[in-house]
Design a protein around this nucleic acid. Structure first.
Lengths: 212, 212
DNA sequence: TAGATTGTTAATCGATTAACAATC
DNA sequence: TAGATTGTTAATCGATTAACAATC
């Protein structure tokens, strides 16, 4: 139904939702201009993005903050819990498991698995690290809908294959490689080195421009 | 000089560079089609992106892998080292400090600072965690050009202000908030919850579409 | 009514990609 | 020469934003 929401808009909805938290509790209403400032975008873009969710604002007044929060949560599917598995119990997997920012949005980390037997039975964020071999069983039994790949690049494709075969539809990939999966599976990639390299591009070229 | 390279192209250059590593050492040449497959993009896009760096390919043959690697490294400014500071010695800061993926690209983590005295003198990736108060001094003395903010959201803006005042031009922000800095400073934002929320949008709407 | 702000149009801008001449 | 593949054009597609009528 109305699946015409542009991808760029979808990726801004979480930013708006978070920005709503920046308003003081005393404020019940906000303008697109205010929200745009907090989200770091143009106010016309805020209005256009929100118009995809249906019309909520009041002309001359703005948007009701509490109502807008509810609408955004509904649009993003955040009105229920999601089972999450972290694949890879190294530094990154451990940090993600202990990251406090997931739980408030309903992301429930239900398992951490790792291929290395030396890691098994260690504890990350209150969860015993389990063997990678148990992946399929865990996905089925604990209703894992989202998997986070925090393995070395060499393991990522095989892990992705096993996850999708087990029925996982959403993958957040931190391994520095592009994984190839069925188009029906949604994959998002976060590459830490890539982010730094984009920064160096700009450093390098602004230094060049100023003659340094 | 020729600063007409589109932002979308810049953000794909690191992906191409990494993908080159996937070719077997015996292969000396690659086509735009092969590189596109490894990078997960269209081959016309590869050719167009690479054309911004000047012309390197040979018609009928493809691109010389070693030469292309050198060109990409040069374009991204990866022919030298960069001093990096991590602000925030919690789980995420610790994981980033220990992340082995930075060093091979010339990113040299030279300091980890934290506001919490309880963290001081603990060791992360061989570096003693230092007081946040020393930030300005460290930036100057150790030539910090890139800062990674891994603090709580509440501290991020003040940290960003101090970093930019100290002369840092590039910031990678992991705090779940939008920071406001001088336009001359390059900021990239990685928000882990946002990534998961974009996944749930698609989960939610594909479930709706199939009637579940 | 006067002021404010939305929702939406239409213009602009930028990015993607099919297609193909050039050429190895 | 025949086959392959680039570099680039031009068409298409999609996203951003200025502007303003609608309306609270």
């Amino acid at each position: 139904m109305r699946n015409i929401v542009p991808g760029a808009t979808i990726s801004r909805l979480p930013v708006y939702l978070r920005a709503l938290g920046d308003f003081p509790p005393s404020q019940t209403t906000c303008s697109s201009e205010q929200l745009a400032t907090l989200a770091g975008v143009n106010s016309a873009q805020v209005r256009k993005d929100l118009s995809y969710l249906g019309t909520h604002g009041t002309r001359g007044v703005g948007y009701d903050i509490e109502q807008l929060r509810t609408q955004l949560r509904k649009a993003l599917g955040l009105e229920r819990q999601y089972g999450v598995m972290i694949v890879g119990g190294g530094n990154l997997g451990s940090a993600l498991g202990n990251y406090g920012g997931f739980a408030p949005w309903g992301f429930d980390v239900r398992a951490v698995v790792d291929a290395d037997p030396a890691k098994h039975d260690t504890v990350i964020a209150g969860l015993v690290v389990e063997p990678l071999d148990h992946l399929e069983q865990i996905v089925g039994e604990r209703v894992i809908e989202i998997a986070i790949i925090a393995t070395p690049a060499t393991a990522a494709q095989e892990v992705a294959d096993r996850l999708t075969a087990a029925g996982v539809q959403s993958i957040l990939n931190f391994a520095p490689t592009v994984i190839d999966v069925d188009p029906s599976v949604e994959v998002r990639r976060v590459d830490l080195s890539t982010e730094l390299q984009i920064l160096t591009y700009h450093l390098h070229h602004s230094a060049e421009a100023t003659g340094s």
